[in-house]
Design a protein around this nucleic acid. Structure first.
Lengths: 247, 247
DNA sequence: GAAGCGCACAATGTATACATCGCGTCAAGA
DNA sequence: TCTTGACGCGATGTATACATTGTGCGCTTC
């Protein structure tokens, strides 16, 4: 049959995409390993056509690379790559913050992101029970997405979304790890302070400050990376994204 | 036949890619127009499969967008989009310059880009004959490519290459126009001065200065854009890239 | 006459068959 | 024993056939 009976036809490529991403992120395919199209197609229960489309999209996302002779392989990231991706996110988000400050943002949008900040406050503040990390991730992602939108630049937002797609460059990349280490929980408080400062700077039209703050905010991720790599290497397994790192 | 007899099989997708890019850049397909796969495939003498691959790559490059209901359409860029893309190139190249300065670059690489600068000097300096704009474009592109490489960051270089792929964000976007307007030739002298200053700052490990200079360097493109749009609208036709602008 | 429904066409999304190219293996010769 | 060549397998790249979905037009009805 040309299209599937049960599953929703036309979403085969989405199925292949999410399936492939999972395989890569969970490390079920190793670095440099050549990705056999037929094997993957059989494994994901899709045809080769949507699978190749998914492979192409993953190449665009940067998770796989083309082999000169043909086909694709899982990309392996050096530690320097991870550092650079985090730095780049800081630069891009910094630019978004600066443009938002320089160009001004409509009050309704400012209010919306302030609401997110307030919600984050309630999550971060030490309460009786354990912190809801899932909720934190959701709100944190929303904050960063809205920050990108504040720039008013479609081009920039797209680029931020791209770099954020790299799993270890995501704003939430190290949140999972932090759940187990009490010292890490304090970094979330620091992050929240920076969130507030960034929005404050934008509201005051202080572009340079907003840019510097957003850059520094991304630096937090690098601190966490250094901590995981050098002081607590046993935590590496808990950060899914680092499964892609070669060294 | 499954593959072509005459042409090199496996390069059909490249053929479709370059052909499609030409069609879009030359404005032979209008903004928002739905791109019919069968029609394009027939026009470019390729099958639908490599054509769809090319369409997907062009979407990655940002020249076409997906239609929610399916298929692709030529993306139309607002003037703000063009401005933002230029700004973004400045930010990214600025980051490359800063990282190069902060991290240091091997002397052999510094020497290589200095050679390019010297060659540009010879092209820009007023001589008896007319200036060789083709040579300028080649050297200018090489300078910007090597500048990106000086950062030592693969991630950043890839991103710069991406944004530079947008025709109006290319360092050479407005060079063609300048050939006719004597006043524009002076901007090339200014640009060359900035080239030298950027490399100087990198050599002196002055990261902040290098970043600021590279940003300002991109600003030159925006000046040219403003000039074309507001003072000499008749020149718009000479800048191929601006055929993509809607307003 | 206008609005809503239904049908037919055309377009995309998917599956699969085919051709070519790269790579490994094996054998023969030096 | 090492090197070089050819052969075969398996892989990707390409073409095409098929199913489904979205869209536009015409008809019917109020």
């Amino acid at each position: 049959m040309a299209a599937e009976r049960d599953g929703a036809p036309k979403q085969q490529t989405a199925k292949a995409l999410t399936g492939l991403r999972d395989l890569v992120l969970k490390g079920e395919v190793l670095h440099g390993e050549r990705l056999s199209e037929v094997a993957l197609a059989a494994r994901l229960k899709v045809s080769r056509t949507p699978l190749r489309a998914a492979l192409q999209k993953l190449e665009q996302e940067g998770l796989v690379v083309m082999i000169p002779s043909g086909g694709y392989a899982v990309r392996s990231f050096s530690r320097q790559d991870v550092i650079d991706a985090i730095e780049l996110r800081g630069v891009l988000e910094g630019t978004a913050a600066r443009l938002a400050a320089e160009r001004g943002v409509p009050p309704v949008k400012l209010k919306a992101i302030l609401d997110v900040v307030a919600s984050l406050d309630r999550v971060v503040e030490p309460g009786p029970g354990a912190m809801d990390f899932g909720l934190y991730e959701m709100l944190n992602e929303r904050f960063h997405r809205q920050l990108a939108a504040l720039s008013g630049s479609e081009v920039l937002s797209r680029e931020i979304e791209r770099i954020t797609g790299l799993p270890f460059a995501s704003p939430n990349a190290f949140v999972n790890t932090e759940a187990d280490v009490p010292a890490f929980q304090r970094t979330l408080v620091i992050a929240q302070t920076q969130h507030k400062a960034i929005i404050s700077a934008i509201g005051l039209r202080e572009g340079a400050r907003a840019e510097a703050l957003a850059r520094e905010h991304a630096r937090l991720a690098r601190q966490n990376l250094d901590f995981v790599m050098e002081e607590q290497p046993d935590l590496r397994g808990k950060v899914l994204a680092l499964a892609l790192m070669s060294s």
